Amino acid sequence: MPTFKLISAATCPFVQRSAITLEHKQVPYEIEFIDLDDKPQWFLDLSPLGKVPVLVVQEDERAIVLFESAVINEYLDEITPDSLLPADPLVRARHRAMIEFASAMVADSWRMGTASTREAAIEHAQALHGKLARVEAELVGPFFTGDKLSLVDTATIPVLLRTFWTVEIVPELAVFEGLPKVRAWHAAALELESVKRSAVPNLRELYRAYLGDRADSWVGSQLGSS
């Protein structure tokens, strides 16, 4: 088995996707955190897009750098037992599509949290609610396809967590309203050891501080009343 080093930023949902996969697959790895506001040159030399996650795979005499969470997760799935993707090619393709859909939800959630006005935050919350309603219709429960975790779950759980923390601050955003299976999905994710181990211990507080430190975030401005 190669050795693995995950380059991370503490609050990044895309990194958490890969950390959940590593933890669930029980793959030993080293993690190094960087400041995305002050990216070191060695990181920029590794990451063609200048983004996290980056997974450095050391295999015998060669070191290969992987980037993009979906690519990293699928590689990890391929080299370990008990695949988190379906065997059927068509269903597997659908799962890959839902992983991409989860990335769109990450964008909606981030825009909701960082919007400069109440109206814009509500608009992005409604867009996210609409996407989650589509997932609700397909979600088996407690996880995407039932009792077994999938790569759709590892891709979506980080956005569920951050969205829940945002709605904690401003309940009127109501992203989970009328979505009982999505709510249960979030609750089930919180109980997973792989999810607990995938994040720094104070992730919720760091995320809230990130929003609060943004002078242009309407949600962040509401922290004093939450």
Rank of each mutant, 00 (worst) to 15 (best):
I79V: 15
V54R: 09
A125L: 08
L203S: 05
D38S: 07
K196N: 14
Y75R: 01
S83R: 15
L128V: 02
T156G: 13
V159D: 09
E32R: 00
D35A: 08
L149N: 07
E30C: 04
K148E: 13
F143P: 05
K25L: 00
E59H: 14
A155E: 05
I157Q: 13
G178V: 13
D147R: 07
P2T: 04
D213S: 11
E119F: 10
G141T: 01
T80F: 02
E191L: 09
L203N: 12
E205Y: 05
P53N: 06
S221T: 04
E168L: 04
L160V: 00
V219S: 02
P89F: 04
L84A: 08
A133T: 15
G113P: 02
I79H: 08
R118N: 12
P89A: 05
D38L: 08
E205S: 05
V140Y: 11
A9P: 09
F4Q: 08
R118D: 14
M1D: 08
L76Y: 05
D82F: 06
L206Y: 08
A174N: 15
I20T: 10
D45Y: 01
V15T: 09
E123L: 12
E138S: 14
V182M: 09
E30V: 04
R17H: 07
L128Y: 04
V167K: 13
L22G: 13
A189F: 02
G220D: 03
T145H: 10
G130I: 12
D108H: 06
E205N: 07
